[in-house]
Design a protein around this nucleic acid. Structure first.
Lengths: 248, 248
DNA sequence: TACAGTTGTCTATATCAATAGACAAATTTA
DNA sequence: TAAATTTGTCTATTGATATAGACAACTGTA
């Protein structure tokens, strides 16, 4: 942002210190506050945001707790390096290849799996009957030891029986689908929204309460257009941005 | 969501009533709470979310204020119809055509315009020198009388001198660009994030404080690949979702 | 009518959030 | 060393947030 000094909202249900912490995170992401450099002093921030110094201190305390800042008495408060991952989304969206070059290691951890009857929404997406058995996988995407996504994925249980074992073993959706004869697939549709992280997301993504998650709801299809996978993924907005490439 | 009963977080900087209001909005969007039907009674909601009935009442009061719910003493609290707009994003993203079929009327209102030197970020995106003059437009997208987006757009001032007048007159980016000999253009890149709405967004989008906005940062190019427009758009997450179509 | 179920209002209390001011402790600079 | 700058700690006060309980007001139904 080119210094749009929009101010802070009061009595919204979101505390001032949380809003200011969000602003500082934005400032770091947008380059207003350089990495490894000192933040403006607390009194200056208090004036900039029109709040008391103690309120700024609460925001800073939260970000120190979060590992984003380090405060040193007498010297200043410093921005630790913490660039947001840029997660590409397009027809060939895949977790692992998408983050190549940004991280040295990444995989998908299977948190739990279950079989359940398909809800209307899932049945429609997968093109099966409502109530038919589907396998649900709860997974967490990890890159360089950090949690970067939390997803819930559904497969037709008849066609993909045992896929949870393949996921646990390979740590990859692409590799698991290969075992069922699917060597290539496409992202058919993606719907995007955002919300506050719920307790489950907070725990799995190692977020501080009040964090925002980006939510994608996607359907993957075979090259023939047959739906094979329905997934809802949550990404921590403070650590991940989604990049859409044209014609991809 | 298939009824994942994840609970609420305390002392996060986001008040319980705000979190519960968000959850109810999600519930409406996901179909957990049907439109025009009664919400569960306050005591049931209080138990479901593990909070006091008065806290649920605060959340409901906020949503009534927002026009999402209507409470009737003795009868119950009802969901007003309020479907989220689905805003398509792809290579041919355009405001007006994208919402066709979902709304009967839409246009872009020009809130203000100014000329300023390009920041590093904007200069890079537009392929011009840092400090060169750019025109900044502050706009609001409206559909059926409701604000659905708030955007800040930059153009090279040399090439698009007077585009603010064209925007004010036509209410359309596409139509304005035609006056400068650009009959077609493509969305080159889009980067997506989310944050709490700031004061400016709240006012322009008619949101209640604490609301979340989806943020897109996009570059449009001519068919030759020459960048012509750089824009940051904010969409109210409670009213708009973004839909990405493969191969678009 | 009587009753069960629901939202609306009131009082009271405890904790969190925000402001205000003063001063201590550590670091850097003159 | 002395002064200026910056973060850390403490006390005090106010308003918002959350819980608790009781009861009134309204609706639909037995």
């Amino acid at each position: 942002m080119t210094g749009l000094a929009s101010s802070i909202e009061r009595r919204n249900g979101v505390s001032l210190w949380r809003q200011i912490a969000d602003r500082i995170l934005q400032g770091i992401a947008s380059g207003d506050f350089a990495e490894n450099a000192a933040l403006p002093p607390e009194v200056a921030l208090a004036e900039r945001y029109g709040v008391n110094r103690h309120t700024v201190r609460s925001a800073i305390a939260a970000l120190v707790q979060e590992g984003v800042l380090r405060a040193e008495q007498g010297r200043g408060t410093f921005v630790l390096s913490r660039k947001r991952l840029s997660y590409p989304i397009g027809a060939r969206t895949r977790f692992s290849t998408g983050l190549q070059g940004q991280t040295s290691e990444r995989h998908i951890a299977l948190l739990s799996s279950s079989t359940e009857p398909a809800s209307r929404r899932i049945a429609d997406a997968l093109g099966i009957a409502k109530g038919a058995a589907v396998i649900r996988l709860e997974t967490r995407g990890e890159a360089d030891g950090h949690a970067v996504s939390r997803a819930t994925t559904w497969f037709d249980a008849k066609r993909f029986a045992g896929i949870e074992a393949a996921m646990a073993e390979t740590g990859s959706i692409t590799a698991s689908l290969k075992r069922f004869g699917i060597n290539d697939y496409l992202r058919h549709s993606t719907v995007l929204s955002a919300r506050h992280a719920d307790a489950d997301d907070l725990a799995a993504l190692d977020l501080q309460p009040g964090a925002i998650v980006l939510v994608t709801v996607a359907v993957n299809v075979t090259l023939d257009g047959e739906p094979i996978q329905f997934a809802e993924s949550r990404f921590p907005a403070e650590r991940v941005e989604l990049r859409l490439s044209a014609g991809d």
